[in-house]
Amino acid sequence: MKPKPAPLARDLRDRLEDEILCGQRPPGSRLDESKLAQHFGVSRTPVREALRELAAADLVVLRPRQGAVVATVTVTQLLHMFEVMAELESFCAKLAARRMSAEERDQLLTVHEDCREFAEKGEAHAYYDANRRFHEVIYAGTHNAYLEETTRNMRNRLQPYRRFQLHHPGRTMKSWKEHRAVVDAILDGNAEAAAKAMSHHVTIQGDVFTDLISALPESYVHAMTA
């Protein structure tokens, strides 16, 4: 399993991610390690680690001897990634409903309650962290290490867009209500209902996809559709 980034690198990754998705650093922009280190008042080591994390999420392209640049992602690529993500997470929920232990189900309820607290307060960043833990409890509940790792890797690639999406008005509470349907099905041991509820939660299409694209800055959308 890939080690988690250090706290400073993780903070830099999140800040750069926000700047990219908010249009401050449009697609094609060069990300110079020295200038970024100076800008954030840190050494180049956490900057380099943050750029690697962003590259893993396809937000940044690392070019040999040329450095890093903000990536160009097409709408089709983004939609395809969400389609794969929905299938993986749906399968995880299905297996978790069949395989989760009593202790794991208690853990799921605990993190679900954490999500509710942050959703009611409208704290998108805190909700995202709790939301990630919620999904990872379900991944672990599959008792399938390969599926767990594959799903987590796919989720990491979509992390910036999923986190950005939570800032849409009312999205955190809507997300929590969708979680509740997943939790109810898993606790009932209803594998098919759990898979269906998770697919509904993760699938991004129709108005939801339109809302995500419209929320992105104009420079980013132009690059995605070019």
Rank of each mutant, 00 (worst) to 15 (best):
K4C: 03
A6P: 09
L8G: 02
L8A: 09
L8R: 15
A9C: 09
R13K: 12
R13D: 04
L16D: 05
L16M: 14
Q24K: 14
Q24F: 09
Q24Y: 10
P27W: 12
R30V: 12
L31I: 08
E33P: 00
E33M: 14
A37W: 05
F40P: 08
F40C: 08
T45K: 12
T45W: 09
V47M: 03
R48T: 13
A50K: 06
L54N: 04
V60H: 08
R63D: 15
R63A: 14
R65F: 15
Q66R: 15
Q66F: 11
V69N: 07
A71P: 02
T72C: 12
V73C: 11
V73E: 12
V73Q: 14
T74F: 07
L78H: 09
L78M: 13
L79R: 14
L79C: 01
L79D: 11
H80A: 13
F82R: 02
F82H: 12
E83K: 08
L88E: 07
L88H: 09
F91G: 01
A93P: 07
L95T: 07
A96W: 05
R105N: 05
L109E: 15
C115D: 04
C115M: 11
R116I: 03
R116S: 00
E117L: 12
E117P: 00
F118T: 06
G122M: 08
E123H: 11
E123S: 13
A124S: 15
A124W: 06
A124R: 13
A126G: 02
Y128C: 05
R132Q: 11
R133S: 07
R133L: 07
F134M: 08
F134Q: 08
F134E: 07
V137G: 01
I138L: 08
Y139G: 00
Y139P: 03
G141F: 07
N144P: 02
N144Q: 10
N144D: 15
E148A: 04
E149M: 08
T151L: 07
R152L: 15
R152G: 05
M154Q: 12
L158Y: 12
Q159K: 14
P160K: 02
Y161M: 12
Y161E: 04
R163P: 00
Q165E: 14
T172Q: 01
M173N: 01
K174T: 06
W176K: 03
E178W: 04
A181E: 14
V183C: 09
V183W: 05
V183N: 08
D184S: 15
A185N: 10
N190I: 08
E192K: 15
K196Y: 03
K196G: 00
A197R: 06
A197V: 10
S199R: 15
H201Y: 11
V202W: 00
T203W: 00
I204M: 15
D207Y: 04
V208G: 01
F209H: 02
D211H: 02
L212Y: 02
L212C: 07
P217V: 04
E218H: 10
S219E: 13
Y220P: 00
A223C: 04
M224Q: 03
